[in-house]
Design a protein around this nucleic acid. Structure first.
Lengths: 186, 186
DNA sequence: TCTGAAAAATTTCAACT
DNA sequence: AGTTGAAATTTTTCAGA
């Protein structure tokens, strides 16, 4: 039998790795009981609540809450905790929804493109999708010129991108990363 | 037991309200100095760092850090703090990018549709965009059937939605709400 | 508005049910 | 696993520059 690895660090790294792997990668299903699920729904709304506040909602002691949250962070169920900034408070950046159409004949360039997209901070989100448009991006830029400049660079440095279509976001109706978690396992 | 902590409940609510207002609403520009901006970039990556850790990066005392973060949360610059959950750890939900085409002749139904979209927890994000497709949605569902059911309901209850196109997300390459904040004011 | 120290609250940890 | 209670850490408050 193998010795137990340095527990916390290994678990955190594994969590981070899993998050960036292709989604078809087989992640063993975590078994989350109804308390974990309740907790996840709560901290997805507000991660700054104290363990005591959460304990009241969930019906456990603060210690139990802390232990569960710590475990889920180590397992990678909770990937990270972030502050959400109001775009209008920081220079009112413009948002764009961009669809990229990719040349499929050169699969070796795909990894390079994914890396390119991942590195750019202005690109908030990247979805690899079915259909003729292979990637959908959510991009934020201080203005249209900055966006145009970025897209020119994208086209220059990634020859497998055939074309793209841009939709300017006129209104952010709703934004979040919340995943609704049903009480029982699906 | 301790009495309810003096958390800035009112401020959090105000922040949330601002976040969901129409984007053309005139929010006065906050003046953020270089320390605020640095701080925002840091807490967008990880909001669980202690004030002391942040203080080292920024070059201020922990007290100054706390005061600035508190102020920005009250002002609504920081809208909220959330835990990000790995989709694969919670029932492997499927993601969809949906484009809605709206009938423009009946503007009174638009507000109703916005409300409908905002209320549904499965709809993570809603962008109101230029072009023939008026809304772009990011939707998460436990499976395709659940997604189909939701879209049927959407079409039934919102007669001003003419048609929609769906792209199934094959891979979440990158997901986040981070807005890159340049050192100086734009 | 910052720093630095005191006060208060929260989180962590050990022992036990 | 959960709970309790004490120790350690962090956050909040406040005086002084």
């Amino acid at each position: 039998m193998v010795k137990a690895p340095p527990r916390a660090t290994a678990a955190i790294l594994a969590g981070a790795m899993r998050f960036f792997r292709a989604p078809h990668y087989d992640k063993p299903d975590m078994d989350l009981d109804r308390f974990d699920r309740l907790l996840l729904n709560l901290v997805q709304q507000d991660s700054m609540q104290t363990a005591e506040q959460l304990a009241e909602h969930v019906g456990l002691s603060p210690s139990a809450i802390q232990r569960r949250l710590k475990r889920m962070r180590e397992q990678g169920v909770i990937v990270r905790d972030v502050a959400v900034v109001d775009p209008r408070a920081v220079g009112r950046p413009t948002f764009f929804v961009v669809s990229l159409e990719i040349e499929r004949e050169r699969p070796e360039l795909l990894a390079q493109l994914r890396e390119w997209l991942t590195k750019r901070a202005e690109i908030q989100q990247v979805f690899y999708v079915t259909g003729q448009n292979d990637f959908v991006l959510i991009v934020t830029a201080p203005d249209t010129e900055a966006f145009d400049a970025m897209m020119s660079q994208l086209m220059q440095e990634n020859p497998n991108v055939h074309r793209f279509t841009t939709n300017v976001v006129l209104g952010l109706v709703k934004q979040g990363l919340t995943i609704p978690i049903p009480p029982a396992n699906a």
